[in-house]
Write a protein that binds this DNA or RNA. Structure first.
Lengths: 146, 146
DNA sequence: CGTGTAAGGAATTCTGACACG
DNA sequence: CGTGTAAGGAATTCTGACACG
């Protein structure tokens, strides 16, 4: 049933995935000097590894940095953008938790690739499937197999 | 409605997120020399950036590396583990697509944090919510707000 | 305030070779 | 086959300073 080993799903867990500043800057499209300044001001935090020489950042921080950039592009000051980002980036925790808990089974649905997200809490006889059809993701209810 | 800007979701898109070999090795728990050997044998691929000096790897490759490790730990040879991983790691594409397409709205449900994954394809009057309750993720059907 | 750059040292990564088994 | 290591060069990152505005 579960065809994605726990270790693999665990990769996306809260503080597992860590990126260096170079990758962070490239992926988020924000300069390293900006990230360093934001960190100095306390808006961005790096992970303290034991032997930490270089700074490492979590996926959550990547999300926050991207949000700060987004709000600054809209005209907010750094401080205002950071405050707005602070409220929103909790989302990253939820996203990660759902990935770890729910992305359990890769399967097929009417010949399309799908992920079985598991049964509905109120109606365990039906599972929610996320199906990829024609490059779109659709949600379907499928009777639970026993 | 959509409170996660597109740029932020796009971060998880197919080839956006790239990690260096050091981060990859630490996160996956696989030595750098193993990763280099697996790449040399063609089981792992790095992303060719324009100015590519250092090798960069996608989230999908992180998943594949973790899967190869998993199967080798179970006793398979490198080749057999890589073949088994090859079949499974397509999952990563699906996971990423769903994150980009479906993780749209952070909201509340009965006082708990939730993500609105959007309407059911067969029944657009109901949306699927992933709700975090007592540190567990539950799936619920909620009438679509108009 | 918010960001960039030049500067020198420290840590990281690259490649091809060689060891072991 | 599958992995580790020593080796030297190349690219990356770190910090504190200073420029600009």
């Amino acid at each position: 049933m579960n065809n994605l080993p726990k270790e693999v799903r665990g990769l996306f867990g809260k503080h597992r995935l860590q990126l260096g500043i170079g990758d962070l800057a490239r992926v988020a499209g924000v300069s390293q000097s900006k990230i360093r300044y934001w960190e100095q001001k306390g808006y961005v935090h790096s992970i303290k590894n034991d032997e930490g020489q270089n700074h490492k950042y979590s996926l959550k921080m990547l999300g926050k940095i991207s949000l700060i950039k987004h709000f600054m592009d809209e005209g907010f000051t750094l401080q205002a953008a950071a405050e707005k980002a602070e409220q929103r980036h909790e989302l990253m925790d939820v996203v990660q938790k759902i990935m770890v808990d729910r992305f359990i089974e890769l399967t097929q649905c009417d010949g399309h690739q799908a992920i079985n997200l598991g049964p509905l809490d109120d109606d365990p006889q039906h599972c929610v499937f996320a199906v990829i059809e024609n490059d779109q993701t659709k949600l379907r209810l499928v009777p639970t197999k026993n």
